[in-house]
Simulated scan of single mutants.
Amino acid sequence: MKTLDEFKKFILKGNVIDLSTGVIIGAAFTSIVTAFTKGIVEPLLALAGGGPQPKLTIPIMHKLVEVTEKNEAGQNVTHTVNKLIELDIGSIIGAIISFLITAAIVFFVIVKPMNKLMALADRNKPEEAPSPEPADIKLLTEIRDLLKNK
């Protein structure tokens, strides 16, 4: 029962709610970034690459692969095909660009304004008065000073 109570306390903490809200908003925001990347960034990359879709790959090796297809008579026919294995650098660059766009938007739309609001809230908050010294510390300080003077 103690574990269940501990779990309830963990789930009902504000941090968990904030985090789950952030994940949901982030997932929704992904579609905006994807649309921006596909609608604006990829066409600009295509202009630079000269084709409709820039394919930035690095060939690694050729590999013989067996492929099974149906012929005109409906029978399965197996034959060997020479397949090129390559690294797709273009998709990695696209993912990095997408990440940087997401990070920039989150920073300038959420983090920076939130930091300004927090700074304004801190500036408008009255300063706390220093807490009074406890009586026993004051008394011990006086005793120490008296002993020094003797």
Rank of each mutant, 00 (worst) to 15 (best):
S131H: 14
K138R: 12
I101T: 06
L147Q: 12
D136Y: 09
G90P: 03
L139H: 10
L120I: 08
G90S: 03
K112T: 06
L146R: 01
A95F: 05
F108V: 07
R123S: 14
L139W: 08
L140F: 07
D136K: 05
P126E: 09
N115Y: 10
P126L: 12
F99P: 05
S91V: 13
V109R: 05
N115P: 00
L146G: 00
I97D: 02
A119I: 02
I105D: 00
I93A: 14
E128P: 09
I92F: 10
M114V: 06
S131Q: 15
V106Q: 01
L140N: 02
I105Y: 00
M118L: 15
R144E: 15
R144D: 15
A104E: 13
G90I: 02
I92C: 05
I143M: 13
K138H: 09
V109K: 07
P130I: 05
K125A: 14
I101L: 15
D122T: 07
E133V: 08
L117R: 06
A121L: 11
I137L: 12
D145P: 02
D136F: 11
I101D: 05
V109I: 12
G94V: 00
N124D: 01
I89A: 15
I110E: 05
N124Q: 01
K116E: 06
T141V: 02
N115L: 15
A103T: 03
A104P: 14
A121C: 04
F107N: 13
K112M: 12
E133T: 09
P132N: 10
I89C: 04
R144P: 04
I105V: 13
L120Q: 08
R123F: 15
A119W: 01
I143D: 08
A95G: 02
T102P: 10
P130T: 06
I93G: 05
P130Y: 08
P134R: 04
N115T: 11
I89Q: 04
L100C: 06
E142I: 08
D136P: 01
R123P: 10
I93T: 06
L139I: 06
L146Y: 00
L120Y: 09
G94M: 00
R123C: 07
A95S: 10
T141P: 01
S91W: 09
N115R: 15
E128D: 09
K116A: 03
L100P: 01
